[in-house]
Design a protein around this nucleic acid. Structure first.
Lengths: 151, 1091
DNA sequence: TGGATCCAGCTACACATC
DNA sequence: GATGTGTAGCTGGAGCCC
């Protein structure tokens, strides 16, 4: 893929394809999640964009301490100790309704997935024909990082 | 025995006091908590202690001590190993004593056979006593305040309920109703355990149809299943639903609910349906076709790879295995004729079972005698081999072209004969079809009328009584039920015939699909195929899908496009001519329409003369050809036009026939099929001929304005396609009308289908820069600006539609925009700049404009803002090097617009959301120091604004927001400092010594420049021609949305390539930032800032 | 068993409501 | 003032694969 190593963006003449094959595959992949609309949108590749708290944490260290902590934390019950006060243990809530969840009428199902693809985005509605771009601008291609990274 | 001595079997024998029992028990549990491995031994020890207590007649003390021991683990949180082990240990112990008791009973029973029966049936056994005691104890805590206590209680009960066969009815009733209540516990972990517990009751028999139920509450197997089903569907916790999924009894009655979870929002649950539940359901035939189809459709298309993989495995391993690896049986079960997923399933099968490809053998005998399954396998196998260039398999299995053509001909001939020998059935079908047509016509007319009434109501503010039309709708409903009766009435005659015909046509379709991909190496075969296709297309009156594929084959085997057009024209002419003998009028009718062409072209004004139209119709009335012929010709024309790739040049034959047919059809507004086909063909025709397109857009525009959703969708698709092919110039100076139409359609939530089309269409036009290509057009400056404003408003409307509360009701629209908006933004820096330029307006309007705020379920600022920021993040741009990404200004500009929204009268929630998201903006020291400086100053201004308004509640920030804002300001200042430093170093290295003097000159020049043009990014440098003053902007700024005038704080993209005026650009940018922020107080925001 | 991933719960805080 | 609700960021557990 020689294109990857070209430094300058390529400026294309009119009537070129909007997205090339690689780019379509790239977008189809990237848009795989977050298809359900704004209320279900989640940040995915956001960390990379966040340049403020970018100091890399010494991961190994923290991991070890948590690991150790986990081991040490193991609780052992003393069955010879004083008995638990049952009145406290079984104490009822002041308002019993706080134990009840609100009724949910939803079905917890995904909506029908129309599986929108980039090929549909660059194809006409009424026939199988790819739309061309009208402007004079560099044709979109993947950046190196995108190709080697998440692409 | 003292506390330090652990009990042994021997020491237990010596126990004589209850405190010794207690001590022994504590020891056992002290050990049991350490691990599962010792449990077997400890169970024996504890059992001995229990038996000893029974022996001493102190079993109630044993029970008491046991509950005290258990109390100690009830407050241990979920995940605490110790508590889990103790719970398991209790379960093991209870199981063990229950088993012992059963064994003892059996032994006793066999003894009793010899002796007389005892009387102790009535008495409660020590084991039952213990279990009952334990249950009552635990039930005391089942409604405890502490969720952990409830969790542990229900967990223990879930273990115990497996061994409760002997408990009394009252205890059971108390247990059952308490557990039932926990199905609605606030805490998911409690509900989950309650599901597990209640699931065990499914195996009990609560059949009280013969006898009276011993329970006072409703306990039946059906009610238990019902409760689990309620949880599997409605519980909002994925883990609870999972527990219900895994524990619900698998039966024909529950299958639909199990299958339904293949669409669960949780991907683990979906995967489980395929990996585990499907196996538990047994052979694929245990599930009916409809549900199998759903499973495949959902699973093979799932967004999660893991789910897809599990679904693939289910198909290719479990189901395939369940039909003993018989591929034909598998295909038979797929019901290929009625299935939408069979093809995908087959291709996935081939891909994941490549080992089976070589076992497929297709010889002469095979393809000479095709069943639908054989034909389907042959076709999908062929397509798979072709797509994966498995040419050896193709050569080994598939016939020569000439044989394929002959086979195809054979089946086509079979079809013709079959139809000919069933004329009665055909008549029945035709008459049914006629009724159907009448129905469609009425529906379309009614839809159009309703739409017109709505339009008139809106435009003239008249209230029209639509009662009449409602009545008509009711009448139509009656017709629907009548039409639906057809299949019922024709059960014996037509239905079997239709099925057989469909089988034949399905086989033909498979052959055509092969022919469409076939390698016509030998010319003899090609010519044979050509002959078959041409003949059959002309003579056979093939149904839509077959005709469409046949035409594709024709195109494939034609010499070139011109040849294809000539042949198809001839075919359509022949179809028409075949009826010439029967109806002389038809030919002349078409000629007449040709003559009408001129009239038509004159008619592209907005107001069409209804009388003239009617007159024209009348004139044509006597020459009417049979509708079905016209429809057939038009359908063929549509398919032909769909296949033409090149602009129309001198295909006059095509022009004369199609423009005649098309105009004829369009005028028949009361004939649905004809009218809609006419519009489709008009649109398609316009795509290959610019002059047709010019008229077509006007015709389509009028049709849309006065019609219902069906017509509008067809019209909208056509218009957008025409714009995609010919550009905006095709609509001349009328851009405003069209923009308004687009806007109205986009925001018309009564026509959800139309919304989808226009949203997708606008995205296409923006993505391809067909919209916003103003710099290349030759329109006047004013025209340019109007176009620009219309497009800007449309773009903002698209973004607003994505976030609109009502869009959650139009799933398809949401999905389209979820895909298209980010693709648009990420595909070019200019696109990203455009998104950032509307960010401020979007936020302001979403959270302050009544249009958006008065709905329920509206989105929060904390979810909207990160999305806007994500779309504008330069890291998401394609096409750029890391260096270029670091120099992108989209986030910087977005920041300016966000600050603007921050300083406006937005609510506190919005302000906080903006501030907390500022840290997500990607601003680097590779940006020019001048713009960073501008941003830093803007931020100071914002800070000041907050100080000045400190008395207003909205401007009183909480601690965290203060900190976040200060951190961000500091970050920008640091970045600015670094940038200055970097530029200094670069200047030193650079030998371009004249930079300063150039800058000086430019600064002077800047002062004289007009004050309102804005530009974006280094690549885009504004040219003088594009300058406009603020005043001109306002004068021509008509608002397509009927709202107040829109604010003109906008960056204007220019498409000129990079030149060496970067410095000027940067100065501009800096000035921009100042201006935008200064303007806040004085500018009259369109988005009406109601006080 | 360990690693990667996703999800849900936890905590701290702000704010609304009773 | 107590209580409930909503949010952000973190963390640990669950289910899976190898």
């Amino acid at each position: 893929l020689p294109r990857l190593f070209e430094e300058e963006p390529r400026y294309e003449k009119q009537q070129e394809e909007v997205l090339d094959r690689d780019l379509m595959a790239y977008f189809d992949d990237r848009m795989r999640h977050n298809w359900r609309g704004p209320e279900h949108w989640k940040v995915t590749a956001f960390k990379r964009a966040n340049n403020i708290d970018q100091e890399s944490k010494p991961k190994a260290d923290t991991q070890q301490t948590t690991h150790e902590k986990k081991k040490h934390d193991a609780v052992v019950v003393d069955f010879f100790g004083d008995d638990v006060d049952e009145d406290t243990l079984f104490e009822a809530p002041r308002n019993p309704s706080t134990l009840v969840k609100k009724e949910n009428s939803g079905l917890n199902k995904l909506p029908d997935d129309i599986r929108y693809t980039s090929s549909r985005l660059i194809t006409l509605f009424t026939k199988q024909f790819t739309i061309s771009t009208y402007s004079v601008k560099p044709q979109a291609t993947l950046t190196d990082a995108q190709f080697f990274g998440d692409a | 025995m003292n506390q330090s001595e652990k009990p042994t079997l021997k020491s237990i024998k010596n126990i004589s006091r209850t405190d010794e029992v207690n001590n022994a028990m504590r020891h056992v549990f002290q050990d049991a908590q350490m691990g599962l491995s010792g449990h077997r031994k400890l169970v024996i020890v504890l059992k001995n202690v229990f038996n000893k207590s029974v022996e001493l007649n102190q079993q109630e003390y044993f029970a008491l001590y046991l509950t005290r021991i258990i109390n100690r683990i009830l407050s241990l949180k979920k995940g605490e190993q110790v508590a889990d082990r103790i719970a398991k240990f209790c379960a093991s112990f209870i199981r063990s004593i229950v088993e012992d008791e059963i064994e003892a009973k059996q032994n006793k029973e066999s003894d009793e056979d010899k002796e007389e029966d005892d009387e102790d049936e009535e008495n409660e056994s020590p084991t039952t006593m213990l279990i009952t005691y334990l249950i009552h104890h635990l039930l005391r805590g089942i409604e405890a305040k502490d969720k952990t206590v409830r969790y542990r209680v229900v967990q223990l009960l879930a273990y115990l309920v497996r061994y409760i066969g002997e408990i009394d009815n009252n205890t059971f009733e108390a247990l059952y109703s308490s557990l039932n209540k926990r199905l609605n516990d606030k805490e998911p972990i409690v509900r989950l355990q309650a599901i597990v517990a209640i699931s065990h009751f499914q195996v009990f028999n609560f059949d009280y149809t013969e006898e009276e139920s011993p329970f006072e509450i409703d306990i039946t197997n059906a009610s238990i299943t019902e409760k689990i089903i309620h949880s599997i569907r409605h519980d909002e916790s994925a883990e609870v639903r999972r527990a219900a999924l895994l524990n619900l009894k698998k039966s024909q009655a529950t299958i639909p609910y199990l299958i339904e979870r293949a669409r669960d929002t949780n991907s683990i649950n979906r995967r489980l349906v395929y990996s585990r539940i499907s196996r538990e359901l047994g052979p694929m035939n245990n599930i009916d076709f409809k549900n199998r189809e759903l499973l495949l459709k959902w699973g093979l298309n799932d967004r999660e790879e893991a789910v897809q993989a599990a679904a693939t495995k289910m198909l290719t391993t479990h189901w395939y295995g369940s039909v003993k690896e018989d591929l034909f049986e598998l295909i038979e079960n797929l019901h290929v004729k009625d299935s939408d997923i069979a093809e995908t399933a087959m291709l996935i099968f081939f891909k994941s079972r490549e080992d089976k490809l070589s076992t497929i053998k297709i010889d002469e005998a095979y393809w000479k005698q095709l069943s639908i399954e054989k034909a389907f396998l042959m076709r999908t196998f062929y397509c798979y081999c072709q797509d994966h260039t498995l040419l050896e398999l193709v050569d080994a299995n598939f016939p020569e072209a000439v044989d394929l053509a002959e086979t195809l001909e054979k089946y086509l001939e079979l079809r013709t004969k079959f139809i000919a020998s069933n004329s009665e059935n055909i008549k029945a079908w035709e008459s049914h079809n006629e009724k159907l047509e009448v129905f469609k016509n009425q529906l379309l007319q009614l839809e159009n009328t309703m739409s017109r009434i709505n339009l008139e109501t809106e435009t003239h503010k008249k209230h029209l009584d639509a009662a009449d039309d409602n009545l008509k709708f009711l009448q139509l409903e009656e017709q629907v039920s009548e039409l639906n009766r057809f299949h019922e009435e024709q059960k014996d005659n037509y239905v079997p015939f239709a099925e057989k015909l469909q089988d034949l046509e399905f086989i033909i379709l498979q052959l055509l699909l092969i022919a469409n991909k076939f390698d016509y190496g030998d010319d003899f075969g090609r010519r044979k195929m050509l002959q078959v296709i041409r003949k059959r297309l002309t003579e056979d009156k093939l149904p839509g899908e077959l005709a469409s594929i046949a035409l594709k084959v024709l195109k494939r085997i034609s010499l070139h496009e011109k040849d294809f057009i000539a042949m198809s024209t001839e075919i359509i002419t022949d179809i028409r001519d075949s009826y010439d003998n029967e109806d002389e009028h038809f030919h002349s009718a078409v000629s007449d329409f040709d003559d009408d062409d001129d009239d038509e072209e004159e008619e592209d004004e907005i107001e069409q003369d209804e009388d003239e139209e009617a007159k024209q119709k009348k004139r044509n009335e006597p020459k009417l050809p049979p509708d079905d012929i016209v429809i057939q010709c038009l359908t063929m024309s549509q398919h032909v036009l769909e296949l033409i790739e090149h602009p129309l040049e001198d295909y006059t034959s095509l022009t004369s026939i199609y423009s005649g047919l098309v105009n004829y059809a369009i005028n028949y507004k009361e004939k649905a099929t004809l009218h809609l086909l006419g519009l489709k063909c008009l649109g398609l025709f316009a795509l290959i001929d610019r002059s047709t397109a010019e008229d077509a857009v006007a015709t389509l525009y009028h049709s849309m304005r006065s019609s219902g959703e069906q017509v509008r969708i067809i019209g909208m698709k056509a218009v957008i396609d025409i714009l995609s092919i010919h550009g905006v110039s095709i609509i001349g100076t009328n851009i405003f009308s069209y923009a308004r139409l687009f806007y109205k359609s986009l925001t018309n939530y009564d026509m959800p289908g139309l919304q989808c089309v226009v949203a997708e269409g606008l995205c296409k036009l923006f993505l391809t820069d067909i919209f916003h290509a103003s710099s290349t057009s030759n329109e006047s400056e004013e025209g340019d600006n109007q176009e620009y404003e219309s497009e800007k408003q449309l773009f903002e409307a698209l973004i607003l539609t994505y976030f609109h509360p009502l869009t959650s009701k139009n799933q398809e629209l949401g999905q389209i925009l979820s895909f298209c908006i980010p693709v648009y933004a990420f595909s070019h820096p200019n696109h990203q700049a455009r998104v950032s330029s509307v960010s401020g307006d979007v936020i302001y309007r979403l959270f302050s404009d009544d249009e958006f705020t008065h709905h329920d379920h509206k989105l929060s600022a904390t979810s909207v803002i990160p999305q806007l920021i994500f779309w504008c993040d330069p890291n998401n741009l394609v096409n750029l090097t890391q260096f270029e990404i670091k120099r992108q200004t989209s986030h910087l500009w977005q920041c300016v617009y966000l600050l603007q929204a921050l300083e406006q009268d937005t609510s506190k929630v919005v302000k906080r959301a903006i501030i907390s998201n500022l840290s997500k903006l990607y601003l680097t020291d590779k940006l020019e120091s001048t713009v960073l400086k501008g941003l830093a100053e803007a931020l100071e201004g914002t800070k000041q604004c907050f100080e000045e308004n400190a008395t207003i509640p909205e401007y009183q920030l909480d601690k965290l927001s203060h900190k976040n804002l200060d951190n961000f300001i500091e970050y920008v200042n640091e970045t600015y400092a670094k940038s200055v430093e970097r530029e200094g170093e670069e200047r030193e290295k650079s030998n371009l010594l004249s930079t300063n003097s150039i800058l000086g000159e430019l600064e002077n020049e800047l002062d004289t420049q007009s004050q309102h043009d804005k530009s974006e990014t280094e690549e885009n440098v504004e040219t003088n021609e594009e300058e406009t003053t603020q005043d001109t902007d306002k004068e021509i700024n008509e608002d397509i949305s009927d709202n107040e005038e829109s604010v003109d704080v906008e960056m204007q993209d220019a498409d000129d390539p990079v030149d060496d005026l970067k410095r000027q650009q940067l100065e501009e940018n800096l000035r921009e930032i100042d201006e935008i922020l200064d303007a806040e107080d004085s500018v009259d925001y369109s988005i009406s800032m109601e006080e």
